[in-house]
């Protein structure tokens, strides 16, 4: 075996990765170019940006997922706006989500608890705007159904 497959040949196999890296860059270029359309970049308002900051600075991803990424302790929130709208209607979805966040925690014994984050009205509205914008992202038809 030593004569057939030498150390130099083994080392040269590493150069194959150059092709892979090039392909990765090409696919990245394609992704970055199409993202503005897929995420409706024009809808990222200052309010949505503030909502994103509220989302991050309260560590929502420590319990929830956002398009499947995060923790698996609490429901998916990438489509939460659509889900609540599905359960209520267009006018009630927003107020419902805000009220839900405000009445936490439930303090029901043995149940998983969500802390109260003491969000201001501005922050609540911004968070809602963020979730609404996010629910309209083209995510290749994921999640499989409204339950997330």
């Amino acid at each position: 075996m030593n004569n057939i497959f030498t150390n130099a040949m083994a080392r040269n196999t590493i150069y194959g990765s150059v092709l892979v890296i090039l392909l990765f860059f090409v696919l990245t270029f394609g992704t970055v170019r199409t993202l503005p359309e897929r995420v409706h970049h024009e809808n990222i308002t200052p309010q949505v940006v503030l909502g994103k900051a509220v989302w991050e600075q309260n560590h929502c991803v420590g319990c929830h997922t956002l398009l499947g990424e995060g923790s698996y302790y609490a429901p998916e929130l990438g489509n939460v706006y659509q889900r609540i709208k599905h359960q209520t209607n267009e006018t009630h979805a927003g107020p419902f989500i805000k009220a839900w966040i405000e009445i936490m925690p439930t303090d029901a014994p043995m149940r998983r608890q969500m802390p109260n984050f003491n969000l201001s009205k501005t922050e609540l509205n911004a968070l809602l705007a963020f979730l609404k914008w996010f629910s309209e992202i083209n995510a290749a038809n994921w999640p499989p159904n409204i339950e997330g």
Partner: peptide, 30 residues
Amino acid sequence: DKWLYVITAAVLMTGILGTGHHYYWIGTPE
């Protein structure tokens, strides 16, 4: 050394584009 070369090549050639399995459903292209 010979094994390590092969493992290194295999890691780089599979792992880098393997990143793609995180890009199915997060708003990135199909």
